[in-house]
Amino acid sequence: MNTFFVLYRKELLEMLRNYKWIWVPLVFILLGAMQPVTTYFLPQILAGAGNMPEGAVIEIPTPQGSEVLAQTLQQYNTLGVLIITLSFMAVISGERNSGTAAMILVKPVSYTTFVLSKWSAMLSLTAVAFTAGYAVSLYYTNILIGDVGAGGFWKSLLIYMIWLLFVGTLTVTSSALLRSPGGAAFTALGATAVLAIATSLFPKAMAWSPGKLTGLAAQSMQTGLWDEKTWMVVLLSFVIVALMIMISVLALRSKPSLDN
């Protein structure tokens, strides 16, 4: 366990050195704040766009606070997921390609510890960035749009965090399986997209699919609901995450460096 913390701290330090601890949270905060602000100023933006016919009356119903937060999650669904995959695409393959992995793994460090330290560092950054961004979004929504129930907020935060954990783990696994970082990012993004499409196409067969997490997060934001189905989806996601970590460990064990 001790080596785990040493490696974990090394990972955190490295993420600080290449500015990840600064730019990822900043981008999440900006994305989160953008949604309520643009929703609030939408009438002015449309009026300022200028290509409206003379005398056109624009009636835009002011959305509920919870709707705006659900839209924020949509925003994270595209750009947030993209940023997570892109910033962690080299998490294992980079170490393997540069030979650092081989150098660390000749020391008494188990493959599991190595992968877990990288995975938890990634998870910490994702959790901090997302929580900060979502909290800022809540703050602006409360000021500009209207009150949002705290219960729904915490539930959707938790559910969406599990989704990001799933996406991040997918990236780590692809990075352990593939040599090129770009390929890993592409695979992770493709798999998420396929999962989302399959989940919406086959609602019966994919009733417990992790692809449901995004929808459930938005739904629990609006209704504060957390039922049995949610538990099953969450549980299955955790199982898949554990499996993916095992696959990454096996992939690294079978190929710890490029030249064997």
Binding site: Y19, I22, W23, L26, V27, I29, L30, A33, M34, V37, Y140, I143, L144
Partner: peptide, 20 residues
Amino acid sequence: TIIAPLAGLQFLLAIIALVA
């Protein structure tokens, strides 16, 4: 007070990127 913090954050991000 609504817009300024956002503009500030964007500015900060650009500055850090320039430094990097």
